[in-house]
């Protein structure tokens, strides 16, 4: 009988002991994990590139999944340097893996992380054929760095990248097309046209200058139309009918135009 009681007590105390140690272990592990998350990665990019035993693509994916998990487990004390490390490792191990570059441009600048631009620019330099990279980079340049020149360049790059949807081309053509912004954007493209030694960039700049000049012309003609008829035109064809323009100019990007209620020309998003 005594032996049975001894065994039962032994089991109860053992279970209680397990419970207590499990509890304290979890407490300690949680604080350790939080500290670990704050530390930078110790894995060196070049070492991993040299010693990956043929598993470079696999490791790139592994770090990509780590980056997503890390970002997904958002906390107040999140260390974005670690996310940057993960994205750098991913793009170094598999330079053709396009989405991490775009992800860096989409997420990091919004968090005040300059490294996001560097990662995305690396993708642009490596000529990765994914329009998302320059597109997100253009947005970040425009929204956070307030650099309209860089934004215009990247929007244009996105629009000319293979596989870019019509909407990206529309955004690129419409970027800065409102009269209050148009002169600034014309000045940007004028600078690119005058300073660029790259024939492709020069050609693109020339197209944008013609595109915005057509919009200026239509705006001026719209004002003239109002003076004559008392109302703004609805479509550019009205200007030809009223003999204000002899013919409608052709947009170098193939866009068509219409007029808003305020008589200002806008691009028709019908590509």
């Amino acid at each position: 009988m005594k032996r049975k009681i001894f065994i039962i007590l032994g089991v109860i105390f053992s279970l209680a002991g397990v419970f207590v140690f499990q509890y304290f272990y979890d407490q300690e592990a949680r604080s350790f994990a939080a500290k670990k998350d704050q530390q930078p990665l110790v894995v060196n990019e070049s070492t991993l590139k040299d010693f990956n035993f043929g598993l470079q693509a696999f490791l790139a994916d592994y770090f990509w999944l780590q980056a997503i998990q890390y970002y997904g487990g958002w906390r107040d004390d999140q260390n974005f340097e670690k996310l940057t490390d993960y994205l750098n490792l991913t793009t170094e191990l598999d330079p053709h893996f396009s989405y991490p570059y775009a992800f860096a441009a989409l997420i990091l600048p919004n968090e005040g992380q300059e490294a996001g631009y560097a990662i995305a620019e690396k993708g642009v330099e490596r000529k990765i054929k994914d329009w998302h990279i320059p597109y997100y980079l253009a947005m970040a340049e425009f929204l956070y760095r307030k650099d309209k020149t860089a934004a215009a360049r990247y929007f244009d790059l996105a629009a000319t990248t293979e596989g870019a949807p019509a909407s990206a081309q529309y955004v690129s053509a419409a970027f800065g097309s409102r009269p209050d912004n148009r002169q600034t954007v014309i000045a940007i493209w004028q600078t690119i046209y005058e300073t660029s030694t790259d024939e492709i960039a020069k050609g693109r700049a020339e197209k944008y200058l013609v595109h915005f000049e057509i919009m200026n012309l239509l705006d001026r003609a719209s004002v003239e139309f109002k003076k004559r008829s008392g109302a703004f035109p609805k479509v550019p064809e009205d200007l030809v009918k009223a003999n204000i323009l002899k013919a409608l100019p052709t947009d170098p990007f193939g866009f068509e135009f219409k007029f808003g209620e305020d008589g200002i020309v806008v691009i028709k998003n019908n590509k």
Binding site: G54, L55, A57, D61, L65, F103
Partner: peptide
């Protein structure tokens, strides 16, 4: 399973992980 965690990169993940596994 890993592919489903990849934020739209399923094809790449299954290609890489699968090849690494076979290898």
């Amino acid at each position: 399973i890993f592919a489903s965690l990849s934020l739209g990169q399923e094809a790449k993940i299954v290609t890489d992980f699968g090849l690494a596994g076979i290898y």
